[in-house]
Simulated assay, not measured.
Amino acid sequence: MNLLLSVAFVLCWSSGFVGAKLGTESSTAVTILMWRFLPLAVVLVAVAVGSRRAPWQGLTARDVARQTAIGLLSQSGYLLTVYYAIQLGVSSGTTALIDGTQPLVAGALAGPLLRQYVSGRQWLGLCLGLGGVALVTTADASANTGVAWWTYLVPFAGMLSLVAATFLDQRSPTHVTPLVSMTVHCTTSALVFTGAALALGGAAPPATGSFWMAIGWLVALSTFGGYGLYWLVLQRSGVTGVNTLMFLMAPVTAIWGAAMFGEPFTVQTAVGLVVALAAVTVVRGTSPRASAAARR
């Protein structure tokens, strides 16, 4: 079951970069994000109002405020930077590759913040994964020379935002169901992006089929699939486990980008994919006993 969840998570999360590329070909980042979350938030709020209070039972205002902060970091902050980077010309593969440095940041902070200490074998896998990310990144960046250097810092900021949201969630003393967290996060994002789109004059959607295809893609695969599975895998595998899977986002997205948009996929990209797969195997293969010893 964990393997199937991991595969589904990688595919669905990677789909978000592809969906962003599809959407930004006909619209701006805030317009796409507004229409991605506004209808979804309406549906989720309606479900919450009509449901029996069980999922919300026992939650305090402080719990809801924490979930709002997590949503601001993990959806609003993270997605805006990703979409804006792609809008500026950074390829979907490169954006995913920069996000691929997240496991090292999360791994370094998991010990002091969560007491989830990373074992020697896990560090070996994390560093191996960074090597795979570097291989694919240099191959992709060399073929995308028309983009200003500072644009690559935009998705890096988004990566830090998602890391912060992950640790804020893990330090929460209250267990929150996926339905509750998804409702709060999506409603928060809908308010943020609708306000931004109205302020920037970008609330009106373009009259193109590709735009609405991108919106459907993002809602079904990226929000319910990728975002929902992120928190589920996080609960089952911990910070290091879920973030190690992030190493796979870059090469998988590079394959999608090559197939759908003609983005470069070279021998070096393929080698990076193999290295990233090896990194995941090393980290995920850590025995429970070793993991327990690392936490002591």
Rank of each mutant, 00 (worst) to 15 (best):
R115G: 12
G100W: 02
A148T: 04
G100Q: 10
V136A: 10
Y117D: 15
F156P: 05
V105S: 11
A141T: 14
I98P: 01
A165N: 02
I86M: 02
L97E: 02
S74M: 13
L126Y: 04
S91Q: 03
Q87E: 13
D140Y: 03
T68C: 08
M159G: 12
L160N: 10
L104G: 01
L104C: 04
D169W: 11
D63R: 12
F167T: 05
I70E: 03
G89V: 09
L128Y: 04
I86T: 01
V64A: 04
D99R: 06
A69W: 10
S76M: 08
G77F: 04
S74Q: 08
V118A: 02
V163A: 03
T145I: 09
T94G: 09
S161D: 00
Q170S: 07
A65K: 09
L109W: 07
G71T: 10
A165K: 03
G71E: 08
R115M: 08
V136K: 06
T166Q: 02
V154Y: 04
L135I: 00
F167R: 05
L59Q: 09
T68L: 05
Y84D: 06
L59M: 09
A110N: 14
T151E: 15
G132T: 09
L128A: 06
Q116K: 06
T145N: 12
S76Y: 08
A139F: 10
Q170Y: 03
L73F: 14
D99I: 10
A96N: 04
S74N: 14
L124Q: 04
G71P: 06
L130M: 14
L135Y: 05
T145V: 12
N144Q: 14
L104S: 07
V90F: 01
G93F: 02
N144L: 13
Q75I: 15
Q116V: 06
Q116R: 12
L88F: 11
F167L: 09
S92Q: 11
Q102I: 11
V90G: 04
V163Q: 01
L162C: 01
D140V: 00
G129A: 09
W150C: 03
L168V: 13
V118W: 07
G93V: 04
S92M: 13
V154I: 09
D140R: 01
Q170G: 04
L124S: 07
L109I: 13
L135A: 06
T151C: 15
S119T: 05
F167Y: 03
A61E: 14
G89Q: 12
L135W: 01
V154E: 06
Q116C: 08
Q57C: 11
V133Q: 03
Q67W: 10
N144H: 14
